[in-house]
Amino acid sequence: MMKFLAPLAALAFAAPLAAQDFSENSEARSWDLYAEVPARFDAKVVDLLCELTGDCPEDCGAGKRQMGLLRSADNVLVLAMKNNQPAFTGAAVELAPFCNQTVTVDGLLIDDPDLNAKNIYLVQMIKAEGTDDWVKANKWTKEWAAANPDAAGKGPWFRRDPRVQAEIARDGYLGLGLEKDAAFIEEHFE
């Protein structure tokens, strides 16, 4: 009996397998981020809240929820946190049209156990299953501008975003309340 249990115990207590290398054929452009690695893989586009809690609307939350990638090779849930634009925004907008579909993505994977950063993904290109056409993941700012026509102007989008402005009006720039904000501004800027 021990002869059969020993190999099973060795497997159970063995060091975890090395992370898979998804860099083959990747054409992702570096962002010079710490622990970034080019990664191209097939995955099912999923609603993260659905995957984690079982709250699963048909349309993946109609673009109002964070999207994730359930990687086909190992069934790992990868957190899509950014699109191919300079701001750290847009992954959900880019992936929502592919809700519950299998796609191939190309981008940057951040995986660093020292930082507790695991399976964080910056999607740059998306290709729907059964097609040869890659779609650049760069439409977030155009969609934001179309949804916020009264916020047109120069400067970063977040300085003009009505949601951001409403938060600042309610809680101040620091998020600690208007009185704390006023005291901080007086102490540091006047």
Rank of each mutant, 00 (worst) to 15 (best):
Met1Ser: 13
Met1Leu: 09
Phe4Asp: 07
Phe4Thr: 08
Pro7Arg: 01
Pro7Asp: 02
Ala10Leu: 14
Ala10Ser: 11
Ala10Lys: 13
Pro16Trp: 00
Ala18Thr: 13
Gln20Ala: 14
Asp21Phe: 00
Glu24Phe: 14
Ser26Asp: 03
Ala28Leu: 06
Asp32His: 11
Asp32Ala: 11
Leu33Met: 12
Ala35Thr: 15
Pro38Asp: 07
Asp42Arg: 14
Val45Met: 11
Asp47Pro: 02
Asp47His: 07
Asp47Ser: 05
Asp47Lys: 08
Thr53Glu: 06
Thr53Lys: 06
Asp55Phe: 13
Pro57Met: 11
Asp59Ile: 05
Cys60Lys: 09
Cys60Gln: 10
Ala62Lys: 12
Gln66Met: 13
Leu70Ala: 04
Arg71Thr: 01
Arg71Val: 08
Arg71His: 02
Ala73Pro: 02
Asp74Arg: 07
Met81Val: 09
Asn83Asp: 15
Asn83Pro: 03
Ala87Trp: 04
Thr89Leu: 07
Gly90Phe: 08
Val93Arg: 12
Glu94Lys: 03
Glu94Ala: 09
Pro97Glu: 07
Asn100Asp: 14
Gln101Thr: 02
Gln101Ser: 14
Thr102Ala: 06
Asp106Ser: 12
Asp111His: 14
Asp112Val: 02
Pro113Tyr: 12
Asp114Pro: 01
Asn116Pro: 06
Ala117Trp: 13
Lys118Leu: 14
Val123Asp: 03
Val123Phe: 02
Glu129Val: 00
Gly130Asp: 10
Thr131Ile: 12
Thr131Ala: 01
Asp133Ser: 09
Trp140Lys: 00
Glu143Ser: 04
Glu143Leu: 14
Ala145Asp: 11
Ala146Leu: 12
Asn148Thr: 13
Asp150Pro: 01
Ala151Asp: 06
Gly155Pro: 12
Gly155Lys: 09
Arg159His: 06
Arg159Ala: 11
Asp161Phe: 07
Pro162His: 05
Val164Gly: 01
Gln165Leu: 15
Ala166Val: 08
Glu167Ser: 06
Ala169Pro: 01
Ala169Val: 02
Asp171Arg: 11
Leu174Glu: 04
Gly177Arg: 03
Leu178Val: 00
Glu179Trp: 07
Asp181Cys: 04
Ala182Cys: 03
Ala183Asp: 09
Phe184Gly: 01
Ile185Arg: 14
Glu187Ile: 01
Phe189His: 12
Phe189Leu: 14
